[in-house]
Design a protein around this nucleic acid. Structure first.
Lengths: 411, 411
DNA sequence: CCCACTTTGTTCGGCTACCGAACAAAGTGG
DNA sequence: CCACTTTGTTCGGTAGCCGAACAAAGTGGG
C-alpha cells in the first residue's frame, strides 16, 4: 500500500480564475483592513508567499497600506486595505419605459445618478443614445478630470442567453431585433461591457450589498412592469440551459384565470405587475369610493403610498398580489429549498404589509421543513437596486479575474 | 499601462480537487482509450508533463497501456485505457419496503445483484443487517478471492442534509431516529461510505450512464412509493440550503384536493405514488369491469403491464398521473429552465404512454421558449437505477479525488 | 528598567510542477 | 529512399510556493 499524504491545504471555490493574486485581492476586498499575516492564515499560504503577492499588488493601486492594527502580543501588523476609489464603474438599468445610470466606486457606493423616462420598447437607438448621454453626465459630474470607468454593466428587462449574450431582447421587444446596444456602449466608452437580466442583477446586488450578504443560495423576486426572479445558486447567478431560468411570469397559478399574452391562462403575469395591478385598482374603485386612489395618479407609486397610509383599497390590491406571489414562492421553496427569499422591486417598500399575507400563502403550500429554513424578506436597496447590480456585475467579474482592473498585469 | 499577457491556458472546472493527476485520470476515464499526446492537447499541458503524470499513474493499476492506435501521419500512439476492473463498488438502495445491492466495476457495470423485501420503515437494525448480508453475498459471488470494495454508496428514501449527512431519515421514518446505518456499514466493511437521497442518485446515474450523459443541467423525477426529484445543476447534484431541494411531493397542485399527511391539501403525493395510484385503480374498477386489473395483484408492476397491454383502466390511471406530473414539471421548467427532464422510477417503462399526456400538460403551462429547450424523456436504466446511482456516487467522488482509490498516493 | 517571549514582515535557499527544446523511435507519402 | 509528421522521453530551466532564519516591534512579569 502506498502512503497517503495529507492534501495540500486548498480551500475549494475561493478563486475561480487566476491564482493566488485573485484570492488575496478578493480577501482584502471582503475584509476591509487586514494584515499580511492574517491573509496568510486565512488562505493557508505562508507569510513569505503572501508578502510577495501583496508586494506585487501594491503598485497596481488596488490595495494600499492603511496604517497599523492592534498588537496581538507581538509586533503590530501593517493593515492592507482595498482602494475603493481606485476606479469607477457605470451601471445602466434599461427598464421597460426608462433608463437609469449609476456611477459607483469599487464598493458599490453610488457616486452619481441620472435617470430619464424613455419609450424603450419602440426606440432602441434613442435608448442607446440616452444611456450614453446619462453615462457621460455621471462621469462629467465627478469634476477634476473626467475618469474612465473600468467597465459598464447593463441590466435589460429580458432573458439573456448565456450562450450568445449579445443577441438580446428579440423575443420580448421585436423593435430591438438585431440592435446592438452593447456594441454602441462599447464603441463609445471603449471599455468592457457586460449584460444580464434585471432580476439576476437585482439578486447580485442583494448578494453584495443587501439582505443576502453571506447567503449563497437564495431567490430574488422583482415586481416591476413585469415580474421575474433571479436565482443565486452556490454564489453564482443561475441561468439555466437557455438563460430563461427564473422567468416566473408565466407560471400558471389559476387554470381558470384570464388569458395571457403567452397563450396560456392564469399566468402570474396576468395578476402581478404594473398593468394588472393598476387595472385591478380601477376595477375595485367603485367599491371603495372614499379611497385616496380615487382621482390620484394611476401609477404604482400612488398604490404604494396609499397602502403605506393603510388605504383599504390599496391594502386589498396588495393583499391579493401577495397571495399570488406566495403561490409561486411556495413552488420555489419546494423545488429549490433556497436559504432565503428576497422580494424587491415595486412593492418591497411595503414591508410587512406585503410579507404577512405572502407568508400566509406560502405556509399553506410548503412542507414545514423547507419553509422554516427560508426566511422571506423585502429588499431595502430601493429603486436603484438594478443599476447598482449592473455595476456590481462588473466588480464581481474583476474580482474574479483582476486582469480586468486597469493597470493590472497577468500573473 | 502595464502589459496584459494572455491567460495561461486553463480550462475551468475540469478537476476540482488535487491537481493534474485528477484531471488526467478523469479524462482517461471518459475517453476510454487515448494517447499521451492527445491528453496533452486536451488538457493544455505539455507532452512531457503528461508523460510524467501518466508514468506515476500507471503503477497504481488504475490505468494501463492497451495497445497502439492509428497513426495520424507519424509514429503510432500508445493508447492509455482506464482499468475498469481495478476495483469494485457496492451500491445499496434502501427503499421504503426493500433493500437492493449492486456490485459494480468502475464503469457502472453491474457485476452482481441481490435484493430482498423488508419492512424497512419499522426495522432499522434488520435493514442494516440485511444490507450487510446482501453486500457480502455480492462480494462472495465474485469467486477467486473475495474482493474488497473501494467504497459503499447508499441511497435512502429521504432528504439528506448536506450539513450533517450522518443524521438521516429522522423526519420521515421516526423508527430510524438516531440509528446509524452508515456507521454499521462502515464498521463491517471497513471502507468509506457515502449517502444521498434516492432521487439525487437516480439523477447521478442518468448523468453517467443514462439519457443525461453530456447534459449538466437537468431534472430527474422518480415515481416510487413516494415521489421525488433530483436536480443536477452545472454537473453537480443540487441539494439546496437544507438538503430538501427537489422534494416535490408536497407541491400543491389542487387547492381543493384531498388532505395530505403534511397538513396541506392537494399535494402531488396525494395523486402520484404507489398508494394513491393503487387506490385510484380500486376506485375506478367498477367502471371498468373487464379490465385485466380486476383480480390481478394490486401492485404497480401489474399497472405497468396492463398499461403496456393498452388496458383502458390502466391507461386512464396513467394518463391522470401523467397530467398531474406535468403540472409540476411545468413549474420546474419555468423556474429552472433545465436542458432536459428525465422521468424514472415506476412508470418509466411506459414510454410514450406516459410522455404524451405528460407533455400535453406541460405545453399548456409553459412559455414556448423554455419548453422547447427541454426535452422530456423516460429513463431506460430500469429498476436498478437507484443502486447503480449509489455506486456511481462513490466512483464520482474517487474520480474527483483519486486518493480515494486504493493504493493511490497523494500528488 | 530589563528580559523572556510573541507576532509581524522580509530574505534566502530549496523543492515541485510544469514547460520548451532537443532527440530517438516509428510512422506517412512522394 | 527521403523529407516530413507525430509520438514519447530526456533534460535543463523557470515560476510559485514553502520553511527556516532573522530583524523589527511589540507584550508582560519581575
Amino acid at each position: 500500500m502506498t502512503t497517503v499524504r495529507r492534501a495540500k491545504s486548498s480551500r475549494p471555490g475561493v478563486g475561480r480564475e487566476g491564482g493566488l493574486a485573485t484570492e488575496v485581492l478578493g480577501f482584502v476586498w471582503r475584509r476591509k483592513a487586514v494584515s499580511r499575516a492574517e491573509i496568510a492564515r486565512h488562505t493557508g499560504r505562508s507569510r513569505s508567499t503572501i508578502s510577495e503577492v501583496v508586494g506585487r499588488l501594491l503598485p497596481t493601486g488596488l490595495i494600499e497600506e492603511v496604517g497599523s492594527g492592534e498588537s496581538r502580543g507581538g509586533r503590530r501588523p501593517i493593515l492592507i486595505g482595498f482602494r475603493d476609489r481606485a476606479s469607477v464603474i457605470l451601471g445602466v438599468d434599461i427598464g421597460a419605459a426608462h433608463v437609469s445610470v449609476a456611477l459607483t466606486d469599487l464598493r458599490g457606493r453610488i457616486l452619481e445618478w441620472r435617470e430619464e423616462d424613455h419609450p424603450v420598447r419602440s426606440d432602441p437607438q434613442g435608448t442607446a443614445d440616452l444611456a450614453v448621454r446619462l453615462g457621460e453626465a455621471c462621469l462629467a459630474a465627478r469634476g477634476n478630470g473626467v475618469p474612465t470607468p473600468m467597465g459598464i454593466g447593463v441590466a435589460v428587462p429580458s432573458p439573456v442567453d448565456p450562450g450568445s449574450p449579445y443577441r438580446i431582447l428579440e423575443r420580448i421587444l421585436p423593435a430591438w431585433h438585431a440592435f446592438d446596444l452593447l456594441g454602441e456602449l462599447r464603441d463609445h466608452f471603449q471599455v468592457p461591457v457586460f449584460v444580464d437580466n434585471d432580476a439576476n442583477l437585482g439578486a447580485l446586488a442583494e448578494h453584495h450589498w443587501g439582505k443576502a450578504v453571506g447567503i449563497d443560495d437564495f431567490a430574488y423576486l422583482k415586481v416591476a412592469t413585469g415580474i421575474g426572479a433571479g436565482l443565486m445558486i452556490g454564489g453564482e447567478i443561475y441561468r439555466g440551459a437557455t438563460g430563461v431560468a427564473g422567468e416566473i411570469g408565466h407560471v400558471a397559478i389559476d387554470p381558470r384565470g384570464p388569458e395571457c399574452v403567452c397563450g396560456n391562462r392564469g399566468c402570474l403575469a396576468t395578476f402581478v405587475g404594473t398593468a394588472p395591478l393598476l387595472s385591478r385598482i380601477r376595477a375595485l374603485l367603485p367599491q371603495f369610493p372614499q379611497s385616496v386612489l380615487n382621482g390620484a395618479a394611476a401609477d404604482i407609486r400612488a398604490l404604494e403610498d396609499a397602502a403605506l397610509a393603510d388605504d383599504p383599497l390599496a391594502l386589498k390590491v396588495v393583499d391579493e398580489a401577495a397571495r399570488n406571489l406566495g403561490i409561486v414562492i411556495a413552488g420555489v421553496l419546494n423545488l429549490m429549498n433556497p436559504g432565503s427569499v428576497i422580494v424587491g422591486g415595486s412593492l418591497a417598500r411595503l414591508g410587512d404589509r406585503l410579507l404577512v399575507p405572502l407568508s400566509e400563502a406560502v405556509a399553506s403550500r410548503t412542507l414545514v421543513a423547507s419553509a422554516a429554513a427560508s426566511r422571506i424578506r423585502t429588499s431595502e436597496l430601493g429603486p436603484r437596486a438594478t443599476a447598482l447590480g449592473a455595476a456590481t456585475h462588473v466588480l464581481a467579474a474583476a474580482l474574479a479575474d483582476p486582469r480586468l482592473f486597469p493597470g493590472v498585469s497577468a500573473s
